[in-house]
Amino acid sequence: MEEITEGVNNLSVTDSNKKNRIQVSNTKKPLFFYVNLAKRYMQQHNEVELSALGMAIATVVTITEILKNNGLAVEKKIMTSTVDVKDESRGRPIQKAKIEILLGKTENFDELMAAAAEERDVGGGEEQS
């Protein structure tokens, strides 16, 4: 799994300077960290691009499905490719599967987010991050 993380870290600068891109690793953060981050990015940029390599692809698909099933996101574009990643143990590049999913806000995204925020405020009186 370390080579996946390394692969994500080695993506070119032009690839990673998009302000609404989340590079998902299945080792670094819990699933709902990414779900909540994706919601925030959609609020700010109206869309979010989730990107992952190798085993983390399943995590991106799960995040996408959670957002779709909650009525927050629609798929705009799905791109698949393979990328060369340096494998330290073998000393030569290996090919990794890559997925990029572009999600946009649904028509009632803002409504649903406002309702969820209101629920939190009324529920505990404490702000959750």
Rank of each mutant, 00 (worst) to 15 (best):
1 M>W: 10
2 E>I: 06
3 E>H: 15
3 E>C: 09
4 I>W: 08
4 I>C: 13
5 T>P: 00
5 T>C: 11
6 E>I: 14
10 N>M: 13
10 N>P: 01
11 L>G: 03
14 T>V: 09
14 T>K: 15
16 S>Y: 15
17 N>M: 15
20 N>T: 03
22 I>M: 13
23 Q>H: 12
25 S>K: 07
28 K>L: 11
28 K>Q: 12
29 K>L: 09
31 L>M: 12
32 F>N: 08
34 Y>Q: 01
34 Y>V: 03
35 V>N: 02
38 A>T: 05
42 M>G: 03
42 M>H: 06
43 Q>L: 12
45 H>R: 01
50 L>E: 03
51 S>D: 08
54 G>E: 07
55 M>T: 11
56 A>W: 02
56 A>M: 01
56 A>H: 01
59 T>V: 09
60 V>D: 08
62 T>D: 10
63 I>R: 02
64 T>W: 04
64 T>I: 03
67 L>T: 04
67 L>Y: 06
68 K>F: 04
70 N>G: 10
72 L>C: 06
73 A>E: 05
76 K>E: 14
78 I>G: 05
79 M>H: 05
80 T>L: 01
81 S>Y: 00
84 D>A: 12
85 V>Q: 07
85 V>R: 02
86 K>L: 11
86 K>C: 00
87 D>W: 01
91 G>M: 04
94 I>R: 01
94 I>H: 10
102 L>A: 14
102 L>C: 09
102 L>F: 05
103 L>C: 08
104 G>K: 03
106 T>H: 13
106 T>L: 11
106 T>P: 11
107 E>P: 12
107 E>I: 09
107 E>N: 13
109 F>Y: 12
114 A>E: 15
114 A>W: 10
114 A>D: 10
116 A>N: 12
116 A>P: 03
117 A>I: 04
120 R>E: 15
123 G>F: 06
123 G>T: 01
124 G>D: 07
126 E>P: 05
127 E>L: 09
128 Q>L: 12
